[in-house]
Amino acid sequence: MAAAVFLRWAPHHGTFVGLLAGAALCVALTSNVTRKRRFRRAVQGINDESLPASTASVLTLAASVAALALMGIYTLLFFPLA
């Protein structure tokens, strides 16, 4: 969804928006590729009655979302409307 919003900015803010869309696509693909492994760990944790927190994946996703947000704000503030 974020990539689609970024692509709507392309006519107004230029080609830098392609980098935003590509970054959003990479974050989405990475999340989708690792989904099965995360679900498998969750099921195993439920069976073992002990589910460790996945701190690294949460922090990685949070950092990715923050980076996308900062790039979007940068685009809006510093790239003039065409």
Rank of each mutant, 00 (worst) to 15 (best):
C26A: 14
A67W: 04
A23G: 05
A21K: 01
L59E: 13
L51T: 12
L25K: 05
C26T: 07
Q44W: 00
L51S: 09
L81N: 15
V5N: 05
M1Q: 06
R35L: 12
V17I: 05
F79I: 05
A67H: 02
V27W: 01
I46H: 15
G45F: 08
I46V: 14
E49Y: 15
G22N: 03
G18I: 13
F39P: 01
S57W: 09
A23L: 09
G14R: 04
A42Q: 10
F39M: 15
L61N: 15
R41K: 03
P80H: 12
I73M: 08
A56T: 10
A4G: 05
V5G: 06
A82D: 11
A53L: 14
R35E: 11
V58H: 10
P80F: 08
A69P: 03
A42F: 11
L25F: 10
V5I: 11
F39I: 10
L20G: 07
A67S: 07
F6M: 06
I46P: 07
L29K: 02
N47Q: 15
L81D: 15
M1P: 06
A69V: 13
A4K: 02
S64L: 07
L19A: 12
F6E: 01
P11D: 05
A53M: 08
D48Q: 14
L59T: 10
P52T: 03
Y74K: 05
T75M: 12
I46Q: 13
L7Q: 01
A28R: 00
T60I: 12
W9P: 03
L29W: 04
A62C: 13
G72A: 05
R37V: 02
G72R: 00
L77R: 10
A62G: 13
F78Q: 10
S57H: 06
A24L: 02
L77P: 02
M1C: 03
